[in-house]
Design a protein around this nucleic acid. Structure first.
Lengths: 135, 135
DNA sequence: TCTTGACTTAGAGTGCGCTCAAACTCGTAG
DNA sequence: CTACGAGTTTGAGCGCACTCTAAGTCAAGA
């Protein structure tokens, strides 16, 4: 698989794939006769996993640590486990924070919506000052 | 309230508050006799709301749009409502993505954990090749 | 043979959101 | 009076994660 196809399948740009290789997030790719990168399916699987880590907000330097451990073999499995557990905990906390923010957003949206409804229903029935303020 | 106290209470730096004022996210603050910024509670409330937007990943340029609408008065309420609804939808989608990533993380963590347990229990009972691979 | 398009490299540039520096002014405590 | 800490300004610098440029190579199709 050439870099273009891998990029398309992983949903990132070929530029980004080369960048990842440069910084060590991807191992140096095998080359074909003309010096072009040639990938197999395992790279796609790895990129998909990196995408999960990225979606969940892991910084590249931590992905590098994980990638280095992976490359170092099974002796690092405990460390890898611990890194993922710590990351999962952070992600869970972040999801909780987002949900609390969503509740605030819902409240505010409801406020705007009822205000807009009132305006449509009884536009001049109340002076502006008596409407529920929105902040 | 001086900028230092506001910063402490909002959980951001005074630098950041001045930066927000510079770019128009905060209105120009009232000054005391010596030209220092003097805030009332409403600024803290606004900063707290901005913090929610930030936590949920809204870029500053969208916060600026929202702030500009707020400053423009009640005529923009429908637009503000729509902006928040669009944002809420994006946040909900992001939460869903995070939860799907969390499921993948859980699976991987379980894989490492069982592998670590096996190693502790019957370290030499199986050749490495027969262990469940972890990717 | 010629053209097209995907690929190669090293390195420069971009956008975001701060974060800090330098040089200065105040108000208050000792 | 002096020292200190907290504030002021403009503008530069930073860390992150790409993203693009320039100049060149290569393989396949018309």
């Amino acid at each position: 698989m050439k870099i273009g196809e891998l990029a398309r399948r992983a949903g990132i740009s070929a530029h980004t794939i080369r960048y990842y290789e440069r910084i060590g997030l991807l191992p140096r790719a095998d080359r074909d006769g003309g010096g072009r990168r040639d990938y197999d399916g395992s790279t796609l699987v790895w990129l998909e996993f990196l995408g999960r880590l990225k979606t969940t907000g892991m910084p590249i330097r931590d992905m590098l640590r994980y990638a280095a451990m992976r490359a170092a073999g099974p002796a690092t499995e405990r460390e890898r486990h611990d890194l993922l557990v710590a990351h999962r905990d952070r992600v869970r906390a972040h999801v909780a924070a987002l949900q609390s923010c969503l509740a605030v957003l819902d409240t505010k949206i409801t406020g705007y919506a009822s205000n807009l409804t009132n305006e449509a229903k009884d536009d001049d029935a109340l002076p502006n000052q008596l409407r529920k303020p929105l902040r």
